[in-house]
């Protein structure tokens, strides 16, 4: 029972209840996933809080990191959505920090990766899409539908183009959430598979241990790759959020 668990690459995604909690037939238990959401938020919040607590004119290293991430997201949003887009800065910044810290924490052995569950990434994507839709209608009323009608398209092609635009808009929350979820899931499975080779090969004795060097090297290399992917996916999520928010601000293209 213990051995298949060790090699099973899916095992790391299992959700275990820590505190059982049901409301009206709904299972709202506090699970290992919930625990790592809390850990993610506490780590990210504490880091930002203590790194900036001295408010130094000449920043320390930690304060520089906090300032750099702040300015990085601010520039990203300003480039994509302009000055008006800055009203969404708290949302984009907290999404970026949440996804980034969740991805990075997931790389620690025995840690649960919050963003490897489609429902979590879909929830975050829906926050973005609902913000875009609600703000778009609030700001532009029915003009928001211009989003689906690009200017300068011949009348004959218009029905086709509008159809494509609607499909692309509807697929945004799916692509946004699946991209992050699939990257995290695939990376962690690959990592687990190679790490599993090391364990099962070295269990075979001398030759096995020698043979385990290659998958061990691969595990190290993939860990480095996964750090890159963790950073990149947080960036991609934030960039796409900025671009979608730009649509809410300027639906006419």
């Amino acid at each position: 029972m213990a051995t298949p668990d060790k090699v099973d690459p899916i095992h790391q995604f299992h959700i275990n209840k820590i505190v059982d909690f049901h409301v009206g037939g709904l299972d709202l238990s506090f699970t290992n996933s919930s625990l790592f959401m809390v850990v993610t938020v506490v780590v990210a919040g504490a880091f930002l809080y203590f790194a900036t607590s001295s408010r130094a004119l000449i920043p320390s290293r930690l304060q520089s990191v906090a300032e750099m991430s702040y300015e990085f997201v601010a520039n990203m949003l300003r480039d994509a959505a302009g000055k008006q887009g800055m009203q969404f800065f708290p949302l984009v910044f907290s999404l970026f920090m949440f996804v980034l810290v969740a991805n990075l924490l997931g790389l620690f052995p025995y840690f649960f990766t919050v963003t490897s569950h489609i429902i979590v990434t879909f929830f975050l994507a829906m926050i973005v899409i609902l913000t875009v839709v609600l703000y778009g209608f609030y700001k532009h009323g029915l003009h928001f539908f211009k989003l689906f009608v690009p200017s300068g398209v011949p009348a004959i092609l218009l029905p086709l183009v509008v159809g494509i635009e609607i499909i692309s808009f509807l697929s945004r929350p799916i692509s946004l959430s699946v991209r992050l979820f699939a990257n995290m899931l695939a990376g962690h499975i690959t990592l687990k598979v190679f790490a599993g080779f090391v364990v099962s090969l070295s269990a075979m004795g001398g030759v096995g241990i020698a043979g385990a060097i290659l998958p061990l090297g691969m595990t190290v290399a993939i860990t480095a790759l996964e750090v890159l992917v963790a950073l990149l996916q947080a960036y991609v999520f934030a960039v796409l959020t900025c671009m979608y928010l730009n649509d809410a601000l300027h639906p006419g293209h």
Binding site: F21, D27, T40, S94, F98
Partner: peptide, 11 residues
Amino acid sequence: PSQILWVAITF
């Protein structure tokens, strides 16, 4: 339901 609830609270 549990994941949505907790991600909503924490986030």
